[in-house]
């Protein structure tokens, strides 16, 4: 099963969800933060069986897409700061556990990612340098080219820009994502191929190829007892076992 936990306006996730559900016809669920936070849930550590029927246990989820933007949706706005922080931390504490129970999480929620230092501009620039990317020194906004990274694939609206980037910088981009423990996200380059900024979610240029590649990536993580699901067959006029594979009994 593929579960999406995100905010209502996550267009990228919504498009992936719909394609997976209606075109690829795989078990898929969408839960906005607001709905998720109202679900009755009981989990027992170290046990797969839970007694709430509404949500699958994390062990039954092959891929969890989680976007923490909007996690405050439906929070108790009337309470004081201390209560709000406790409330937010309770959900983050639960999600951190939940995300690490599922087989595959996009993006992973290991504990280190919660430190503000990891996402500081200084660290991203440093990591980019270490991975072999140059960093744009221009403070003013210039024309930026957005590249979506989806697992092991990089996609942009301007395919000729990938030639500008070249093999080494594409490799460095994947290395940077690996260093930051990201699977999905976007990198903003200037025209020369220097890094301007990085996003942990897919927010811009949500094109059909981006959705298709993202869905294929998620499908590649679906596993049914040793085989991988690809897609539903559109025609039914073939044979699973051909005639030659079914010898006549003489």
């Amino acid at each position: 099963m593929i579960l999406f936990l995100t905010h209502e306006k996550d267009i990228f996730a919504k498009q992936c969800y719909l394609m997976l559900k209606y075109q690829y016809q795989v078990p898929t669920r969408w839960l906005s933060w607001q709905v998720f936070k109202k679900q009755s849930q009981c989990h027992m550590l170290g046990h797969q069986d839970i007694f709430n029927a509404i949500l699958p246990s994390p062990q039954q989820i092959d891929v969890l897409y989680v976007n923490l933007n909007g996690i405050n949706e439906g929070s108790k706005q009337d309470s004081d700061m201390k209560d709000q922080r406790y409330y937010l931390h309770s959900w983050l504490g639960f999600l951190m556990w939940y995300a690490n129970q599922v087989k595959y999480c996009l993006n992973p929620l290991k504990h280190g990612v919660f430190s503000p230092g990891v996402w500081s501009k200084t660290n991203i620039r440093r990591q980019a340098h270490l991975c072999g990317l140059s960093v744009s020194e221009h403070r003013r906004k210039r024309t930026e080219v957005i590249c979506s990274i989806l697992g092991n694939q990089i996609i942009t609206d301007d395919p000729s820009f990938l030639c500008t980037l070249g093999h080494e910088r594409i490799k460095a981009s994947f290395k940077l994502f690996h260093a930051l423990e990201l699977k999905f996200g976007q990198i903003f380059f200037d025209e020369s191929g220097a890094l301007c900024k990085l996003s942990q979610s897919i927010q811009y240029q949500i094109s059909v190829p981006v959705i298709i590649k993202a869905c294929q990536y998620m499908l590649s993580k679906l596993s049914y007892h040793g085989f991988q699901y690809l897609h539903v067959l559109n025609v039914s006029n073939g044979w699973t076992l051909s005639t030659t594979e079914r010898p006549k009994i003489v």
Partner: peptide, 11 residues
Amino acid sequence: KDTMSNLSKPY
């Protein structure tokens, strides 16, 4: 970054 494991007791 190493203190963050305590953000989730079950984790």
